[in-house]
Nucleic acid binder design. Structure first.
Lengths: 219, 219
DNA sequence: ACCGACGAAATTGGTGACAATCTCGGTGGT
DNA sequence: ACCACCGAGATTGTCACCAATTTCGTCGGT
């Protein structure tokens, strides 16, 4: 896709990282001068970076009032997840038709590691595998457009995603869903892969409201 | 969603309009000084506008080499249409569950007008109704996130969309598809609505390569 | 005639200063 | 005690200018 300025990328990446790790919390003001100092960049660059992050949906800007970290409400998180549902379904289906032998073995390994992580109660490890699985499916699908949109939406939902991962008993529910996706893709069954991916996201959407009720903040 | 600067909007809208109407053709260079004069705006504003349009996927920028209108290749147009397929499916399904009586009658009228346009060979009128139908379905669905993504993708594909509309015999093929979408939504049948929307987009994707072979330029 | 080096013109990138606007605490009147 | 007003400080928006880079025509050498 269209790349902005090369030097800008560092600032964009830095601010995005800070938002995604939770260092910058929702509704926190993002003052251009402060960011300029922190990232050792000119104000113009910070400005451009905020513009870009606004388009990505991570930042909200108001005329003459500056930028703040966008707070995604539960209702919106559900909408985003509904879009993810159909897009991940598309990617899973395409991945099923394109997957190579090497990639198939990689997915198998991810599945095995997930099983182990859940068995040993390694929530963080499972969360990482989760993200890796979804990313690999996107990549294998070869759907560049869908992948770009999905990454963007995933970033917007990171906070809700985190709460979900911390929801008690969640891994036990999602593990079989993930394994079903892996199996269908490895079997080159596009229809089943799409159905499995959708079922998984449907389960996420169902759980989102519960998870939102318990406050849980990242480090 | 996040709004940029209010004053910038005019320049952004102006450039976008020029690209969408085909006045600015793909790969045409967008020189900041020229745009600055044309839209009576400072270069800084033009610069910000180009940044935003880059994020929208309408413009491509290269470091120190300026901006040009992004050319969407056929392969990419197909990918975009595949994403549209699942998203329009989602919107159609949601619209089926939410549509009101008044909206139902509006869709019926649009369907009637489409029939008449095709019968009288009014290609342009049919094209406008086509766009209106898709937009109304998005609105009725209440899926703000999906609608935003769809509008963006539709803008990127405008050139291919135009070629498609000019493809001989195309309206005769797409009319029943559109009517099927309308009927399913009006019948509150979410599953059928999604299937109809997908079938329609699948038909678009099938025709895209043929339409791309015949050159056809907008006014 | 071909090819690479060179330099002028065009274009973009960056910076600093200034203007416009908003926020927030205080002040005076009722 | 309450409220409208207002002014200082903070923050964003805008602009003009200069530096850096690319582009392209020209020139000299082979």
């Amino acid at each position: 896709m269209g790349e902005g300025n090369g030097s800008d990328r560092a600032v964009v990446a830095g601010i995005r990282e800070a938002i995604l790790t939770g260092e910058f919390v929702p509704n926190q003001r993002l003052v251009e001068a402060d960011l300029s100092e922190r990232f050792a960049a000119s104000r113009a660059r910070v400005r451009a970076a905020l513009l870009e992050l606004t388009n990505e949906g991570l930042v909200e800007r108001v005329q003459n009032r500056g930028a703040r970290v966008r707070a995604v409400r539960l209702e919106e998180a559900i909408e985003i997840s509904e879009v993810r549902m159909v897009l991940e379904g598309l990617c899973a289906a395409k991945a099923a038709t394109r997957i190579t032998e090497a990639e198939s073995e990689e997915l198998e390994r991810i599945g095995e590691n997930m099983r182990e992580a859940v068995a040993s109660g390694d929530v963080l490890g499972y969360s990482r595998l989760n993200e890796r699985l979804h990313r690999r499916v996107r990549e294998i699908s070869g759907q560049h457009t869908a992948a770009t949109v999905l990454e963007r939406l995933r970033a917007q939902n990171v906070r809700h995603q985190f709460r979900l991962a911390m929801h008690p008993g969640r891994p036990t529910v999602s593990l079989p869903e993930h394994l079903a996706i892996i199996d269908a893709i490895r079997a080159h069954d596009a229809e089943a892969a799409e159905a499995a991916a959708r079922a998984h996201l449907r389960s996420v959407i169902r759980t989102l409201p519960e998870a939102a009720r318990r406050p849980a903040e990242p480090a």
